[in-house]
Design a protein around this nucleic acid. Sequence first.
DNA 1: CGATTTGTACGTTCACATTTT
DNA 2: AAAAATGTGAACGTACAAATC
Lengths: 463, 463
Amino acid sequence: MPVNSFDNYPMSWKPDFSRHTGPKYLSLVKMLEEDIKNGTLKAGTKLPPQRELADYLDINLSTVSRAFKLCEQKGLVCSSVGSGTFVSSDATAQTLLLCEERDRHVIEMGAIVPFTSCNHLVRQYMEKLLKRQDSLNLLSYGIPEGTKRHRSAGALWLQKSGFTADSAQILLAAGGQNALTASLGACFERGDKVGTDPLTYPGVKSAAKLLGIHLIPIQTRNYEMTEEGIRYARQNEGVKGLYIIPDFHNPTAHTMSLETRQMIAKCAVEMDLPVIEDGINNLLADAPLPPVASFAPESVIYLSSLSKTVSAGLRTAFLHTPRRYRQKLIAALYAMNISVSPLLATTAAGLIEEEIAGQILSERRQKIRERNLIVDEILKDTQVSGTAASPLRYIHLPESFTGKEFETYAEKAGVQVYGAERFCVGNKPAPNAVRIAVTTPQSTEELAEGVKRLHKLLIKKRS
Amino acid sequence: MPVNSFDNYPMSWKPDFSRHTGPKYLSLVKMLEEDIKNGTLKAGTKLPPQRELADYLDINLSTVSRAFKLCEQKGLVCSSVGSGTFVSSDATAQTLLLCEERDRHVIEMGAIVPFTSCNHLVRQYMEKLLKRQDSLNLLSYGIPEGTKRHRSAGALWLQKSGFTADSAQILLAAGGQNALTASLGACFERGDKVGTDPLTYPGVKSAAKLLGIHLIPIQTRNYEMTEEGIRYARQNEGVKGLYIIPDFHNPTAHTMSLETRQMIAKCAVEMDLPVIEDGINNLLADAPLPPVASFAPESVIYLSSLSKTVSAGLRTAFLHTPRRYRQKLIAALYAMNISVSPLLATTAAGLIEEEIAGQILSERRQKIRERNLIVDEILKDTQVSGTAASPLRYIHLPESFTGKEFETYAEKAGVQVYGAERFCVGNKPAPNAVRIAVTTPQSTEELAEGVKRLHKLLIKKRS
DNA sequence: CGATTTGTACGTTCACATTTT
DNA sequence: AAAAATGTGAACGTACAAATC
């Protein structure tokens, strides 16, 4: 028994340890888990220091430590030396994003759904392809290595970004998410830490969760990772690699400067940090900046999905991989897929070779630009990040609004947006902001209507 | 320093501990890893008992224990109480299977490649589909939940197996492997143990490796898991679930009896063991036995890929999921894919609705049957498992031949087959056997030629 | 800057369960 | 059936490192 009575001690969590059987540390984990899930412990709550808890429960410090460690692995808490252990903000939040049923009355500006407008060109090409004699092979198995033709098309595609790639280093995946998950699986082990922006694409959160990889926010300045931040994370937090979205970053819509791209490439090489670069939006820029991968092709896995740029239905992504990760990447892609669809991959390749993909791309760019004009006009008195070429925009909210709150108000007004909380990594509170998808509404009218409703909410609150 | 000199002590492994810095247990892991990879320690070698090693290195028992534990997690070694710790057979073996480049001079009977013969029907249907006005949507995003139509088609498809399924419990995946990996990810956590047959589909090994799940062989009798085996594994080895292939099991070609199906269903329910049932070959049987899932639909995830039965290029699999795993499964599928191709899924649905899939299926069954007649004729004096409906056969080798050896000899004779070692789970030595794929050779002539060459090898050895 | 708070890491002890002999 | 061999797991104590005050 503890010498002192702790009944009056100010402790944020007082688990009842008496009735539990079995290993102490597991009981502790279980209680913590329950109390977080049933709401007794809210996100952000500071737990008692390990020593105090150990003292209170009359067990050894290391036993508490072990329990907390396990909880951290489960993503329930997050601790840092000096300041203590806190209940994770992610703990209760769902990682899913896109899978909500569409409500007809709501203008969808949350999920990013690419245009379908140019799909007739894709269809047309596919029909042509199917008519060919040898098309029956397109309905057989395919492999992540792709055929020579697929790989060359991939290289041609990356060339558009100013990245002269070796086609022998290209692989195919069944879409960007597939490529991302495989890349994480290939570069990292369970329990490894990977640095990301403090806000990032939720898909990487899902993938990391599935694979048991922890995401750590890297310090940023003006929405770009800093060299000190990367060095610090590497040395002090044991971060093993990075995930970055240099172009029209999700959700902040920021495009990374050339200097930072080179800095990250340099860091990757020097510190031997594998970097996964999500080039999903690269080609949406009018003059795409060169990928980080182009400065460090043997340290960076470059992902280029065609969903946003050509057609979501093609389910094809190209990966450019450092040679040392090639085998592992192939293994990971196999483990998730065995086969990519040769029909879709070949269609993608054909569209690229015949420059139809380029046409579609420019039409899409044009459309995005038109839509952003509308957004900028309506929100001209509001702080909105992202240029006219961006497929998504990031609205900074007044102090008094959290992203989540605004999301709720917007929903009541019939507009779906996503609050910054959905993109948050680690434990820091999310900024007051929401992301809007410019490409998702069915028409420019719908877009305008949606943005107007958002504007009204913003004005109302301000006054 | 140890009191005695161990220089003459019979120890199978004498790591040089002197020059290493840092944590002792990590040094040990590193040395073990190196010695296994560079061949100093061969697969199956018994390592010294933890106590002796500890004594020899003059460190604590638990330190060795911890190091060994870590190595086990990495799949390097495998230990069992009483008998000791052994170098894993998997340790150096590659988990990959299908990704080897095809050699033109070799008759491929290793990898299982489904027929392409009926693909014209698939193509025809797809062309029809693309001509429709609303086909542009087929090139947009799709979701794992599928549309109502996709799900109903899935239910109709499962009905063919005698499994009356609720379409609300059906999900879609981008192929069988995709479905399998997602299922493992949804049901289990990193470090969990899952029971399989002692020989099993290598794809499940890749997936498990990616997710950090350990596969444990379950005791079998006549190629079927026994109830005692399952109970034992559950209670004494902490096995959390099962993976089974009841129909034309890979690689043994065995089809599970009705009694065992019911037994497994009963076990699943009673012991609360999630079961992943791979129904990939179910419909290839002339009179398919009911899936285990039909006896325990709330405990079994049933996977039905169309690759083997309709067309590999469709990249579509249906999953029937217990309600309690539905959300997790959706999350896992999202994390790997975000989207299934609506074009391919809708084609699959259409083929099922219009019974074209059924036609293709019977034609494929017929073809397999014809091919097996050839195999049986040539190998009539050999012990070969599998019936005439089986897409793969399992050849029992003479005592003196290991599967691996035979594989090498066969390759020299210009035939690729897969030795039982490739399918092995855990540490027990693989039986002397090889698997041959009946469907893979381009023609019946090529098949006959391949089997004849194998026969010659078998005869030669016997005499 | 130095002291304090706080979490982290490693090695150790001991009790135990299972398998083999 | 008993004894020995062998791996497993929990809890502990100590030293340390980072963050905060």
